[in-house]
Design a binder for these strands. Structure first.
Length: 523
RNA sequence: UGCGGCGUGGAGCAGUGGUAGCUCGCCAGGCUCAUAACCUGGAGGUCGUAGGUUCAAAUCCUGCCGCCGCAACCA
């Protein structure tokens, strides 16, 4: 019995106290490319996303708006999914932490860890602001006072709580990293975590809150709710049926990769595997900490962190509605290295769109469709049963291998660069050197061969681009009568020229002899 | 302060020991099938700085300067 290999990946879950911005979208995008690539390569893919709703901030935000918390969360979840859909994020399952299934999962899990003896009751001591009725970290205090209540001095106070004994897992974690060198990627993040643990060690973490209404109730002491991190990470197993559907859970766990922002590497690389180990589960295979997107201030040229106070957040929908989903995807995947940081600027966006999408990919497509349509009535006679001739400067086997390597390592920017430089550029150069528009006047068969040769890299490019630009890639592919159904193409199909049963034919709709531009130039 | 990262032609990046490369922009030329797109050539860099190792360093080591991130909850 041949079973398809399975692939389980997740993205970080988001706080729904405001709409998603381009930074959160960047993460989903990187994850989506991986999911789409794996599907193409025959994997049975489960792609989990969700929202992190059990936080004080969320309940406060709902209160500000005068809405019931649940209603607020559901509305935000709807808005998030709307954005993800607009970006063609192909997730399988979306978990809201306020859902009953998540509460059940989290309770089952924490109970298990408690039974295993890794949770102890103690007390948390810290600086408490009586104005806020909340604990403040040292960092939040200014001269011993909460900035919001400067008339009050923060007081030392302790209250009962439950601790997860993270410190007990320190040696186990270090050994685990050692035995699984690919667990934390990219490598720089791995070094960071290991150094941190070696230098500072791990302390037990308070995993409960007292006196909150909103959140997951601690099953063995209902006076408490589960503190956000301990609860949030569990969405990864809620979504695949932990505590509810054992067979399903066993099918997918452990996760192949968790995509997260580099800021939360610690939770995923230290706390999370320790929690799982404590509950008798295997840690995930990999955690990938991607970079951040900064906003380029068009006036000063400075890079700014996306922040509401600076007023520089960019709504993904602005870009998608103004241009297209694929334009959005291309910009971030090409311009922002997934493993490290990138930046967004409108001027740069237009530059990249025009030079790469309009002038290069889009134009190559246009000129080919037009040449074949005008001069050959849309059909290259005599191509049936043959594969395209090789053209200079184009090595499909090498190009596909390189792109594949980059995609699997999440170096999407380099994958795209390779497609442009090693696949599309040779086609444009070949066109220029052979000038088929001249050949058609003297030697039709020769002209046909040139076009046949040029079409091959375009076919390969759209296959390679399928995970990146799903819509445009399909449009290109569907513009010709390529034999293999689009749904069945794999990267391997790009590595060697396809043989055609029938003569190669243009299927694209034409308007007065011209194709509609795939990417109309900006400006 | 601790840990980490970065500093390469106008802009953005690649390059981890052996003649400094790519994209965009700029200049000149070619072509005219194509979304004024495409192709060719050119100008432009003492690779942050000061030392050191080496036959040889952007590439290894040390100091310094500058920018940035993280340091348990703003992706």
């Amino acid at each position: 019995m041949s079973e398809r290999p399975r692939w389980f990946q997740t993205t970080a879950i988001d706080y729904p106290n405001s709409r998603p911005h381009i930074g959160t979208a960047f993460e989903k995008l990187g994850a989506d490319v991986q999911a789409r690539y794996r599907r193409m390569e025959g994997y049975d893919v489960f792609f989990l996303m969700g929202n992190d709703e059990n936080t004080v901030k969320v309940s406060k935000r709902a209160a500000e708006l005068g809405k019931p918390v649940q209603e607020y969360c559901d509305e935000m979840a709807r808005q998030f999914r709307e954005v993800w859909d607009a970006l063609d994020i192909s997730y399988t399952e979306f978990v809201q932490t306020s859902e009953p299934r998540h509460h059940a999962c989290a309770q089952a899990f924490i109970q298990k860890v408690h039974d295993a003896g890794y949770i102890r009751k103690s007390s948390y001591e810290g600086w408490y602001c009586e104005g806020c009725e909340a604990f403040k970290t040292e960092k939040e205090l200014v001269a011993g006072k909460c900035p919001l209540h400067e008339n009050l001095t923060a007081v030392r106070r302790s209250e009962p709580c439950y601790f997860f004994e993270l410190s007990k897992f320190q040696d186990w974690l270090l050994a685990f990293y050692e035995a699984n060198p690919d667990f934390i990627r990219p490598e720089s993040r791995r070094n960071e975590i290991i150094t941190l643990i070696k230098n500072e060690g791990l302390q037990d973490v308070n995993i409960t809150r007292r006196g909150e209404d909103w959140g997951v109730r601690v099953p063995f002491d209902p006076e408490f709710t589960v503190y956000v991190w301990f609860d949030a990470l569990l969405t990864y197993i809620t979504g695949i049926g932990y505590g509810a559907d054992d067979a399903e859970f066993r099918k997918w766990w452990p996760a192949d990769v968790h995509f997260i922002g580099k800021d939360i590497t610690r939770f995923h690389c230290a706390l999370w595997p320790a929690m799982l180990h404590a509950a008798g589960l295997t840690p995930p295979k990999q955690v990938f900490g991607h970079g951040f997107v900064y906003k380029k201030n068009e006036e000063t040229g400075a890079l700014e962190r996306l922040s509401k106070t600076l007023g520089n957040v960019v709504d993904p929908m602005d870009i998608v509605t103004k241009f297209s989903c694929d334009a959005f995807r291309y910009y971030f995947l090409r311009e922002c290295p997934f493993p490290s940081d990138g930046e967004f600027g409108w001027a740069r966006f237009a530059e990249v769109f025009n030079s790469d999408l309009a002038n290069n990919l889009g134009n190559l497509y246009s000129r080919l469709v037009t040449l074949v349509s005008k001069n050959f009535a849309g059909t290259l006679a005599g191509t049936a049963g043959r594969s395209a001739p090789a053209i200079e400067g184009y090595d499909p086997v090498a190009a596909v291998a390189t792109v594949r390597g980059h995609v699997e390592a999440c170096r999407y920017h380099q994958a795209l660069e390779t497609i442009w430089r090693q696949v599309l550029d040779p086609a444009n150069k070949f066109a220029d050197s052979r000038a088929p528009w001249k050949l058609v006047k003297t030697d039709m068969p020769a002209a046909g061969e040139v076009l046949f040769g040029m079409l091959e890299p375009l076919r390969a490019a759209c296959i390679l681009l399928k995970p990146f630009l799903p819509r445009s890639a399909q449009t290109i592919y569907a513009s010709f009568n390529f034999a293999k159904p689009w749904d069945e193409v794999t990267y391997q199909d790009a590595a060697s020229p396809a043989k055609f049963a029938d003569d190669l034919k243009v299927l694209a709709a034409l308007d007065a002899g011209k194709v509609k531009p795939l990417f109309p130039r900006i400006g």
